[in-house]
């Protein structure tokens, strides 16, 4: 899977890594149980500090997307035991997006069509 990081972004790099991995899991580029690179290897490959990658992995682990153990390293969870509800932060982001779309004159139908497109494209196989 190719991850894309924006150097000049306001979103911190560890958050960008976390978001990219969540997107990868969502659209099937990362399969359940798939092995992820170690903290050191990923930091070396991106060319950033390993603390940043470690922070991203800690967050993903805390949120229940990945699991780590000594024998198998870092892996995507086989199943996600999460409540089918968006966290508060994501809800806020969605609210912001809807507001922006409304200000720009995007109709509700157009907005919903986009949501549907992204949702179905991200259906896991």
């Amino acid at each position: 899977m190719v991850i894309i990081l924006q150097d000049g972004s306001e979103v911190p790099v560890f958050k960008q890594i976390r978001n990219q991995i969540v997107m990868g899991i969502s659209d099937g580029r990362l399969q359940p149980g798939e092995k992820l690179p170690t903290v050191r290897a990923l930091a070396e490959e991106i060319g950033i500090n390993s603390m940043t990658v470690n922070k991203a992995y800690q967050l993903l682990k805390q949120e229940g997307y990945i699991m780590t153990d000594r024998r198998n390293g870092v892996r995507v969870r086989e199943s996600f035991r999460m409540t089918p509800e968006l966290p508060l932060e994501s809800k806020e982001q969605l609210k912001q997006l809807v507001s922006e779309a409304r200000v720009r004159g995007v109709s509700q139908e157009e907005f919903m069509a986009l949501v549907e497109e992204y949702f179905s494209a991200g259906q896991r196989e």
Binding site: V2, I3, Q6, L36, P37, E45, I46
Partner: peptide, 15 residues
């Protein structure tokens, strides 16, 4: 003129 993204392949990263 904006900073553009950096791409990284994570499959077999540094492997």
């Amino acid at each position: 003129g904006e900073a553009q993204p950096r791409y990284t392949e994570i499959k077999e990263a540094a492997g």
